[in-house]
């Protein structure tokens, strides 16, 4: 046990392994948890959270700590993976009722969702690198995305934009690349696992 700890410490000191708190941020229903599950499954062998088509399924921060990601034979990243609740400027309980939820449950979900957004914003001060997930079938030029990217830039936190849902026919990756030309954009399908290796390479390159 002592030997393992010493080896861990030595690896970090020699720069063979970096510790990174990786936050997965983005608007509601862009596939943050699907991506977190894919990363967690690939490197830790288990899922991190539940996915649903009803908005605001993730209402508390889902954590997977000490996920070891091998960048090559020598270099490793030790990641604390944080799947954040979706950011939003509005949470309407009536929206949940359209998915068949009863009024009382919908109101409870809305209350929890607002707390989740507050918590996600609070954690912006505690992450080292952010994966800003966007739905590539939708217009990325939203105020939430702009505010998130502006906030991270002001804090000096590295950002990788993940253009998700590329398996869908209506996906337009170019739209995201053109909207945010100053950021690295990695197109992926978190659901199908398409291009996920490029994302891991980008994490290795940009994570601090």
């Amino acid at each position: 046990m002592v030997f393992i700890r010493f080896f861990d410490w030595l690896s970090t000191m020699l720069g063979l392994r970096r510790n990174v708190t990786l936050g997965i941020y983005g608007e509601v229903n862009v596939g943050k948890t699907t991506l977190a599950n894919k990363i967690s499954m690939d490197w830790a062998g288990e899922k991190i959270g539940k996915v649903s088509r009803i908005p605001h399924e993730t209402r508390t921060i889902q954590k997977k700590e000490k996920v070891e990601m091998s960048l090559n034979k020598r270099r490793k990243l030790m990641i604390n993976l944080l799947d954040m609740p979706g950011l939003a400027t509005k949470v309407d309980y009536k929206q949940f009722m359209k998915y068949g939820m009863k009024r009382k449950s919908a109101k409870t979900r809305a209350k929890e969702a607002t707390k989740g957004v507050i918590e996600a914003i609070k954690w912006l001060d505690n992450v080292d690198t952010v994966l800003a997930v966007m739905d590539s079938t939708k217009d990325p030029y939203t105020q939430v995305n702009l505010t998130l990217l502006g906030n991270l830039e002001a804090k000096g936190i590295p950002v990788i934009i993940v253009a998700n849902k590329t398996d869908l026919k209506s996906a337009k990756i170019k739209r995201i690349e053109e909207a945010f030309p100053d950021y690295p954009v990695v197109p992926v399908s978190a659901l199908k696992g398409n291009n996920i290796k490029d994302l891991y390479e980008a994490i290795g390159k940009h994570a601090k």
Partner: peptide
Amino acid sequence: IRETMRRVDNGFPGIEV
């Protein structure tokens, strides 16, 4: 956004900005 979330209730779902 954070303050808006604190004020969300049944009659006020939030803002557009």
